[in-house]
Design a protein around this nucleic acid. Structure first.
Length: 841
RNA sequence: GCCUGAGUAGCCCAAUGGCAGAGGCAGGGGACUUAAAAUCCCUCAAGUAUGGGUUCGACUCCCAUCUCAGGCACCA
């Protein structure tokens, strides 16, 4: 029988399912290994080939670790709450739960076809009441700790979506997912006090084995900065002060004016009558500007208005003017800055525009006076009492002087803001909170959970702008279970991030009905040993999940300070797309390529070929289904790993799959003939030295590549072994067994089938991983390149372990080399035993 | 603008500072076949983005530049 994935793959998938081959026990003598995928949002479009990239990598490692004797936890589930299902529900009039179930079923089907060794008994679904009951439970713990609160704040309101968005979801004034514009609105919202964990979210990054760029992005997101808080009195307003934050307190003596954000609460009060009109105008204009306009990079045009008021410089006692300008952000720090135009680009640009005084208070370290604005560190100057000090010394001295005058102190601030945690949506976790008649918001007791979503058939916000849940009037109207008094349910829901903040914990104990997870099981399984997913979650998901985990840690509910010990980001898979001169895209099946150029089939019109992100509109999406249909799951898996390093961005090439398919066929034919018998060359005898060595070499290479997650080169090593065995008419069973075990994590269906045909009665999922003998890899002789002036000229063969003089003699007596060096003086000979010889002439 | 990462045959990609090639695709040739497909065998090809530097020796280390990808961008 020729290699027929469509026959053997379903067979083994059924076998694994029927025998619960991959069911995981919680505990036992084997060491544990928890390998986790970032679970998918089950979209209506189904899987594309990017999803299984990470899943294949984790599956290979999971299978490999099992063969190495680890107790492996490898689960899968669904991040099932979310906006797309709700929008589809509004559009099609179908309940989001039904849409979600349909999508989940499709995702599960697609994933199961790829033969991943998940323990499906642990599948979780964040939109199931059994799951979100515990999401609500964790929210109550956050609330108890004072980490969840309501506040009326300016929020990012997205009119197109009819909901607010977290700061992280907005970029350049638009929703990052859809590009819909976002505007500021004051609203009462649930907030989570993630800022209380800012310091630990930064410092604990030292505890984990994550890619440096991701750590950096998280550090920058938290944005820790050291400096001083400085209080300014206001001339003529005896009881009024304002506070600024500065990272450069050493430049305080160079502060020639102050700037408040237009929204600063003091603006109205301190503005003098003469300036009132101009200031009011400016506040109005600034308020109307969108975030996008206010921060757009090209709009380097500074604007502002003078309030007429003066601040008292805390050290010099001089009066300096107070301006307002929208380059000072109301939401960051104190919403006010001391302007040091000599040493800050923005202040400099502003001072230039409005003719304000600029003075130098920092010289370069070499004493020179670089052009202003000069924002590097240096030596203080023009700063009575601090002259001659370095930036660092001056900063501490200024802080000390401020402390003495009770006008400031050293301070650390963070860019991180509290997390806006409510959405005006239907398809999310309801808050387990009720509002009493007196307006107080109180938590529901744990034993009333879950607060289930009410049945609705219209998921739009109400006509008066309240969230969809407000439509469920009977549901909203409730009583306080403690007092029996009437109450209203909270109608906001949690954002999609909520469910994904703790799913890795639920996998540990997914069926527990009395607790979110069992403590002993948690202690056994955590932390996650390896977490693989895309870079798109480098900040948001990972920061939120770490925050929740730390809260749970402080509550004694989890035993590790960090949830994910090692993180790895897979690179994105791109695809070729074809576009004609007018910009119209063509599907690859309508394209033919000739001499490296692309043409439309039929018409012959010339096309541009480029590599782009897969997208429907570019007609370049590849679905795993089509690949599995044509080549099988094993080819799909192997090709995804063979394309290149896991973390590289790389283009999908269908004929690359073809090459992999051919490799698997060759592997198959080593063992099975087209007549469906065992290959006649298979023997039980000892393999030849050559085949022994080739096999040991493959074992060594695949093993070390797997430990470094270098799947592409591991596959290459297996190809070499297969090619070597193909050349041989004698096929020692030992070699074939070893090869089958090596390939098992990568192409498990093929491996199981060959394993069975080679006469093994049980699954190879728990067979011991092959061991190699380092001695078997050593050759009796080694080839050593000989170069002259660093250019390789010939190769000599010497016994392994030959000493320098032997090698040098061999090199000099080599016919070709001897001829080349004839008549030349050898200035120097470099011999690295076992490596090379270099003659310098 | 700033910070990362990456540029190696036509393409995807390998190479502890020591023979530029492991593997795959595509191309060429051959065997098998009535023929084709499939299969098997053989084979072609770049000197590593560019310019400097360190070294006996550089794809690898250092500096500058270019291109691409990703992240950040009034955060005081």
């Amino acid at each position: 029988m020729p290699y027929t994935p469509s026959a053997i793959e379903p067979k083994w998938q059924e076998f694994w399912e029927r025998n619960k081959t991959f069911r995981t026990e919680d505990g036992g003598p084997r060491p544990k290994y928890y390998v986790l995928d970032m679970f998918p949002y089950p979209s209506g479009a189904g899987l594309h080939v990017g999803h299984p990239e990470g899943y294949t990598a984790t599956d290979i490692l999971a299978r490999w670790k099992r063969m190495q004797g680890f107790n492996v936890l490898h689960p899968m589930g669904w991040d099932a709450f979310g906006l797309p299902a709700e929008r589809a529900a509004v559009r099609d009039g179908i309940h989001p739960a039904i849409i979600t179930k349909r999508n989940v079923d499709n995702f599960r089907r697609q994933i199961k076809r790829l033969g991943f060794s998940y323990d499906w008994d642990r599948e979780v679904d964040t939109s199931s009441p059994d799951y979100y009951r515990w999401t609500q439970w964790i929210f109550l713990r956050l609330h108890e700790k004072g980490l969840a609160y309501q506040a009326s704040i300016p929020v990012n309101w997205c009119p197109a979506l009819g909901t607010v968005l977290a700061n992280e979801e907005v970029k350049d004034g638009r929703y990052v997912e859809t590009g819909d514009p976002v505007e500021k609105r004051m609203m009462k919202q649930w907030m989570l006090r993630i800022t209380a964990y800012a310091e630990r979210l930064v410092s604990d990054l030292d505890l984990v084995d994550w890619p440096e760029p991701v750590k950096k992005m998280q550090r920058e997101w938290v944005g820790k900065s050291h400096g001083a808080e400085i209080t300014f009195a206001i001339a003529g307003h005896a009881n009024r002060t304002f506070t600024v934050f500065s990272t450069r307190p050493d430049t305080l003596m160079g502060s020639t004016f102050c700037v408040l954000a237009p929204e600063h609460p003091l603006v109205r009060e301190i503005t003098t009558p003469a300036c009132k009109a101009a200031v009011a105008d400016y506040v109005e204009v600034a308020g109307r500007k969108s975030d996008r306009d206010r921060t757009s990079a090209d709009a380097k045009e500074y604007s502002g208005a003078f309030t007429g008021a003066y601040a008292v410089h805390p050290l010099s006692g001089e009066n300096i003017p107070i301006w307002i300008a929208d380059y000072v952000l109301a939401g960051y720090g104190t919403g006010a800055v001391m302007a040091v135009p000599g040493h800050d680009e923005r202040d400099f640009a502003f001072a230039t525009k409005f003719g304000l005084e600029v003075i130098r208070v920092v010289k370069a370290l070499d004493g020179s006076e670089p052009k202003l604005p000069y924002s590097e560190d240096g030596i203080a100057t023009n700063s009575p009492g601090f002259d001659g000090m370095t930036t660092e010394q001056a900063a501490s001295a200024v802080i000390a002087a401020l402390v003495a005058k009770n006008a400031g102190k050293g301070m650390v601030t963070y860019r991180l803001r509290d997390w806006l945690f409510s959405r005006q949506r239907y398809w999310g976790e309801p808050f387990p909170m009720i509002e009493l008649e007196d307006g107080t918001m109180v938590p529901l007791p744990d034993d009333t959970l879950p607060v289930e979503l009410p049945a609705l058939d219209d998921f739009k916000p109400t006509s008066d702008g309240r969230p969809p849940l407000a439509r469920a009037e009977a549901w909203c109207k409730t009583t306080d279970p403690r007092t029996g008094r009437p109450a209203q349910r909270e109608t906001n829901t949690m954002p999609q991030w909520a469910g994904s903040c703790w799913y890795y914990l639920r996998y540990i104990d997914p069926k527990n009905t009395t607790a979110p997870w069992d403590r002993a099981k948690e202690k056994y399984w955590l932390p996650v040993d390896l977490y693989i997913g895309g870079t798109e979650h480098a900040v948001l998901h990972l920061l939120y999940a770490r925050f929740w985990h730390k809260v749970l840690f402080d509550l004694g509910l989890v035993s590790t300070p960090e949830p994910f010990q090692k993180l790895f980001n897979q690179g994105m898979i791109l695809a070729y797309s074809y576009r004609d001169a007018s910009g119209k895209y063509f599907h690859p099946k309508d394209v033919e390529e000739k001499d490296g150029k692309s043409f439309v089939k039929g018409t012959g019109a010339a096309l541009e070929k480029q590599v782009e992100k897969m997208s429907k509109s570019k007609l370049n999406v590849v679905s795993p289904d089509e690949v599995v249909d044509e080549y099988g799951a094993d080819s799909m898996r192997l090709y995804e790993m063979f394309m290149g390093p896991l973390d590289a961005v790389k283009p999908w090439q269908m004929n690359g799959v073809e090459g992999i398919y051919r490799f698997l066929q060759r592997t198959w034919r080593l063992v099975v003939t087209d007549e469906d018998t065992l290959h006649p060359g298979i023997t039980d005898g000892a393999p030849s030295p050559e085949l022994t060595k080739a096999t040991h070499r493959a074992i060594a290479k695949v093993t070390s590549d797997l430990s470094n997650m270098q799947f592409n080169t591991a596959i290459s090593a297996m190809m070499i072994l297969v090619n070597t065995l193909t050349e041989s008419q004698v096929r020692p069973r030992w070699c074939l067994d070893q090869l089958t075990l090596l390939i098992a994590p990568f192409a498990p269906h093929l491996a199981e089938e060959l394993w069975a045909r080679l006469g093994h009665p049980t699954t190879l999922a728990y067979e011991a991983w092959p061991k190699f003998d380092p001695a078997a890899l050593i050759d009796a002789t080694v080839e050593i390149p000989v170069s002259i002036n660093g250019k390789m000229k010939d190769v000599i063969v010497v016994p392994r372990g030959a000493d320098q003089s032997t090698i040098e003699a061999a090199a000099r007596s080599n016919e070709k080399i001897a001829k080349l060096i004839e008549g030349m003086t050898i200035k120097k000979v470099i011999v690295i035993p076992g490596k090379m010889v270099n003659l310098v002439v």
